[in-house]
Design a protein around this nucleic acid. Structure first.
Lengths: 201, 201
DNA sequence: CTCCGGAGTGAACGCTGGTTAACCTGCACC
DNA sequence: GGTGCAGGTTAACCAGCGTTCACTCCGGAG
C-alpha cells in the first residue's frame, strides 16, 4: 500500500480510496464517535462507514482503543503545536496573541466539530496511559493560553487564568451544539467577538 | 392526588419529600455517570455506590435507561422553570433579566457539576421518545435566553441569538472541567463577569 | 400469630460487541 | 507461473452487562 506513484496528501477526496484506508477509518470513526459517543459505536459501524466489515479494522489498528487513542492524541497535538505557533508569530503584544489564539481555536472548532466533540467527551474511555498523555498535551495547550491571559490580567492568580481559559474553550467549543443555522463566517465572527470579550472582561 | 391524609400511600408517585432510596440512587448514578459516562457505568456500580447489589435497582426503576431518562428530564425541567421564574421576577429591563439568567445558570452549574456534565454528554444514549422530550425542554429553555438576548441585540437575527445562548452555556458549563482550583465565590464572580461580557459583546 | 408487600440477594439467561482464527483474493515482483 | 503480502471476509469465541427469577428477610396491619 505504501509508495503509490502519486502521493496525494491534503484533504481532498474524490474517488474510492484517495486518502489511505487508515485515514478514512479515523475520519469516519471521528464522525460516528461524535454523533453517538465512542462507546455506543461498534467496530462494525466504523467498518460499514468506510465500506468494509468490522474485523477489517484490525488490519490498520490494534483495536478500538488504539483508534480512539490516536484520534485524541492527534487532536491534542494539533491544538498544542497550532496554538504555540500562532502565539509565536503574533508578536509581543498580548492582545494580538490572544486574538491569534482565539481565531485559531474558532477555526479549529468550526472546521472539526466532530473532533472537538470527541475530544472532551470520550477522554474518559481511554486506557490510563493514553489518557495521561492526552491530558499532558491538553495541559500544555492550556498553559499557552494561561501565559497570554496572565499578561492581560496581571493581578489575577494562575488558577483564575486557568479557569478563564477553560471557560473560553467551552464558549468556542459550543459550535457543535448550535450547528447549521448560521453560516460559517457569521459564526466565526460571533464566536471570536464573544470569546475576546469574555477573555478580557 | 394525595388522598388519604391518615394512611401512607407511599408507592404511587406522590412523595418526593424525604431522601428515599430512590433519590440516593439517582444522586449516586449522576455522580458516576458524570465521572465515567453512563454507558461505562454498570448497574452493579450504581448499586454498590448506595450499598446494595445491582438488581436491587429494579425495585426502584424500570431499568438503567429509565434512570438516565428521569435524571435528564429533571435537570431540563429545573433549568426551564428556574430560568423562566428568574426572568419573570427580574423586572422589565433586559439587562437585569440577562443578569438573572446568568446568575441562575452559574449557580446551577456550580451546585450540580455532575448533572451539568451528564446533561449534555449522555443525551445521546437515551430512548428516542425520552430524548425528544428532553430536547423539547432544552429548546424551551434556550428560547427563554433567546428572548432576552434578542432584546439586547435588536439587529441580530434569531439564529445568531441562539448560537449566542449556546456559547454562553458552553462558557458557564465549563466549570466541571476546571474544578477545584478556585473557590466557589471567586469562580461564580469570574463566570458571571465573563458570561455577561460575552452575552452583551 | 399470621399474612402481605416492599426491599434485597445470588444465580442464571441472553444479547451485544470486541477480538481472534482460518481462509480467500488480487497484485507486485522475481 | 509461483510466491508473498496487504487487505478483506465469514464464523466463532468469549467477556461483560442488563435483566429476570426464585427465594429470603422484615415490619406492620388484622
Amino acid at each position: 500500500m505504501t509508495t503509490t506513484g502519486s502521493e496525494r496528501d491534503t484533504a481532498l477526496h474524490a474517488d474510492a480510496d484517495r486518502p489511505s484506508r487508515r485515514e478514512q477509518i479515523l475520519q469516519a470513526a471521528a464522525q460516528l464517535f461524535a454523533e453517538r459517543g465512542s462507546r455506543a459505536v461498534g467496530v462494525d459501524d466504523v467498518g460499514a462507514a468506510v465500506g468494509v466489515t468490522g474485523p477489517a479494522i484490525y488490519r490498520h489498528f490494534a483495536g478500538k482503543d488504539a483508534m480512539l487513542a490516536e484520534m485524541l492524541l492527534r487532536i491534542s497535538e494539533r491544538l498544542l503545536v497550532g496554538g504555540t505557533e500562532r502565539v509565536s508569530t503574533a508578536g509581543a503584544d498580548p492582545r494580538a496573541q490572544l486574538r491569534a489564539l482565539v481565531e485559531f481555536q474558532v477555526d479549529f472548532a468550526l472546521d472539526n466539530p466532530a473532533l472537538i466533540t470527541v475530544h472532551d467527551r470520550d477522554l474518559g474511555s481511554l486506557a490510563d496511559s493514553d489518557a495521561a498523555q492526552v491530558r499532558r498535551l491538553q495541559r500544555r495547550y492550556v498553559e499557552v493560553w494561561v501565559a497570554v491571559l496572565a499578561r492581560l490580567h496581571p493581578t489575577a492568580e494562575a488558577a483564575a487564568c486557568r479557569a478563564r481559559a477553560h471557560a473560553v474553550f467551552g464558549l468556542i467549543n459550543s459550535t457543535p451544539h448550535s450547528a447549521g443555522r448560521l453560516d460559517r463566517s457569521a459564526m466565526a465572527r460571533l464566536l471570536t467577538d464573544m470569546a475576546s470579550a469574555a477573555a478580557t472582561a
